[in-house]
Structures are given as structure tokens and as C-alpha cells.
């Protein structure tokens, strides 16, 4: 096993909401290995990974895809990179909604759609690629 493989955890989960907590546990455990992310950054990672994994599961549910969602977590020093891949129907990544002011009726009318904004706020880097074959979300967190 090479060094990269030792620092990488890969899991596949059924596209079901009750598996999101498992992904959080596995990714947080990997991030807490020495040299670990700082505890507050591990908390940020749990939230960001939860959002990305939930989006992937929902994409599978919407498209009727029963294949597993793939999550890969790679540690490099005090940096953690997580890639979440789904095989759902994809979406227009350029058309992601900007967050409205919280007092606006539009915002109060929206009880969802905040996940991407939360990932962007928490991750040091966030990239998303989507096509009709699926979506790949990559998020990277560092410890200062």
C-alpha cells in the first residue's frame, strides 16, 4: 500500500438519508487522525460533508438511481479533501441560487437550498462539476 492509499478512505453508501450520519462519522474519524484538523475545523467538515452527501443522495432519489453514492476522503498533512460522486441526473452548476437577504419573503419562502452556501462558507476550496451522468463535489478544508 502506498502513502496516498494509506491516507485515503473510500466508502459507498446506498442512496438513503439514514446513511448520511455514517458518512459524517467516517470522514470526521479520518480527519481526527494525527496530524489532525483542529476540532472546530472537524465540526465544519462534518457539516460540509453532510450537505454534499445529502445533495448526492437526493440526486439519486430524484432520478430513480439505486446505485451507491461514493465518498472519498484524503488526508494530506493538516488538509482534508473530500470528493462526493453521484450518478444522478446532474444540474446546472452555474445556475446555483444566490442567497437572498434573510428578511426577504423569498428567503422565508425557501426552506431548502442553503446547502451549497453553507459548504462555500465552511470549506477553504469547493468545486462542483455536473453533467447528465452525475455530479462530483470536491471540498477541501485546512487547519490554519
Amino acid at each position: 500500500m502506498n502513502g496516498a492509499a494509506r491516507n485515503t478512505v473510500e466508502i459507498e453508501i446506498p442512496p438513503r438519508p439514514d446513511y448520511v450520519s455514517l458518512v459524517r462519522v467516517v470522514v470526521a474519524a479520518a480527519a481526527e487522525l494525527e496530524p489532525s484538523l483542529d476540532a472546530p475545523r472537524v465540526d465544519d467538515l462534518r457539516v460540509a460533508v453532510s450537505e454534499a452527501t445529502t445533495n448526492a443522495i437526493q440526486a439519486h432519489i430524484r432520478s430513480g438511481c439505486t446505485r451507491p453514492v461514493q465518498v472519498s476522503c484524503r488526508r494530506s498533512g493538516r488538509r482534508v479533501s473530500v470528493v462526493v460522486r453521484d450518478q444522478g441526473g446532474g444540474f446546472d452548476a452555474d445556475a446555483l441560487l444566490e442567497t437572498s437577504p434573510p428578511e426577504s419573503p423569498v428567503r422565508l419562502g425557501r426552506e431548502s437550498g442553503m446547502g451549497i452556501s453553507i459548504i462555500r462558507a465552511l470549506a477553504d476550496e469547493f468545486h462542483i462539476r455536473s453533467s447528465p451522468r452525475g455530479t462530483e463535489a470536491c471540498l477541501i478544508l485546512d487547519s490554519p
Binding site: 450537505e51 445529502t54 431548502s112
Partner: peptide
């Protein structure tokens, strides 16, 4: 122990 955007959405729904 944990909240993400879905939990936040449920709180917003309660407020509304």
C-alpha cells in the same frame, strides 16, 4: 449534536 441545512430548514418552517 448536529445540524445542517435540513435542520435549519425545519426551524425556518416552524418560524413561518
Amino acid at each position: 449534536d448536529f445540524i445542517d441545512s435540513f435542520g435549519i430548514g425545519a426551524v425556518v418552517a416552524a418560524l413561518k
